[in-house]
């Protein structure tokens, strides 16, 4: 968030704005992070994850670019704009095994931050003549595949959200498991569900990483410390 606010400050006078949208079923969990930045750009909440189905967000951070006429010039894609300090940090000796694995997984995340940030600035300055602005046909072609399973997952996730609000946890979990099965590459569907069973309250370091739990068969630690790492969930921008 601080990086996006800084970018907003840089591009606002050029007729552009950052809009952040938190994919959080409970805005109260996102609000403290939002308030830390005190954003001056539009800062929104998507409790239904409707932007997953309408824009194609499947992970965070991801971004889509929209021109002055409301037309997408880049579809949803991985959108880091600053290099994480974790990437350059020495991993201390003696960490718990899972934390150690997680640190290595984070360091292995593909780093497109500098190039992506420069691409945004180029588009802001040059508009449709920017080499990074795509035609409508290219935008559609580069958007992510959506099979019947993936479309069905959006419905299952929404049923889970509906039952979660009804305090019917059993039904919510059943539908979220089905969403995970149908669209395994959608990490926000998974992390949103996992985070509700591994809250920071009384957590160990494993809980904070959305580690093994008694509700779901999968968890963040196991998924990203395996062969595919975080990279399996990242839609890298083609720049």
């Amino acid at each position: 968030m601080p990086g996006w606010q800084a970018l907003h400050n840089e591009i606002e006078s050029l007729g552009a704005t950052v809009v952040t949208v938190a994919l959080d079923i409970d805005p109260a969990l996102a609000k403290p992070w939002n308030d830390l930045v005190n954003p001056t750009h539009p800062s929104l909440v998507d409790t239904l994850h409707i932007t997953n189905s309408l824009f194609g967000f499947t992970n965070i951070p991801m971004a889509a670019w929209i021109d002055e006429d409301g037309v997408l010039v880049r579809p949803a894609e991985g959108a880091s704009i600053e290099r994480s300090p974790l990437r350059d940090m020495e991993i201390p000796e003696g960490l718990p095994e899972q934390l150690n694995k997680m640190m290595h997984a984070v360091k292995a995340i593909p780093d497109d931050a500098e190039a992506y940030r420069e691409a945004i600035l180029d588009w802001v300055r040059n508009g449709s003549s920017s080499q990074f602005a795509l035609t409508p046909d290219e935008v559609i072609a580069r958007s992510q595949p959506r099979s019947d399973n993936e479309a069905r997952a959006t419905a299952c996730f929404e049923l889970g959200e509906y039952f979660h609000r009804q305090n019917n946890s059993d039904a919510a979990v059943q539908w979220w498991k089905e969403a995970h099965r149908l669209h395994p590459q959608n990490l926000t569907y998974k992390r949103q569900a996992w985070t509700l069973v591994t809250t920071p309250v009384g957590a160990t370091e494993y809980d904070l990483m959305q580690g093994p739990n008694e509700v779901y068969d999968s968890n963040l630690v196991d998924e990203v410390t395996g062969d595919g790492g975080f990279g399996q969930f990242i839609i890298r921008p083609i720049l």
């Binding site: 309408l54 037309v71 046909d137 959506r146």
Partner: peptide, 23 residues
């Protein structure tokens, strides 16, 4: 569920305009 007309997450480049909320 969402539309599958194009087999892609987008069937048009016109940006969707959902009603979202501020904090």
């Amino acid at each position: 569920g969402s539309a599958t007309l194009s087999g892609k997450s987008l069937s048009t480049a016109v940006a969707a305009d959902p009603e979202l909320k501020t904090f």
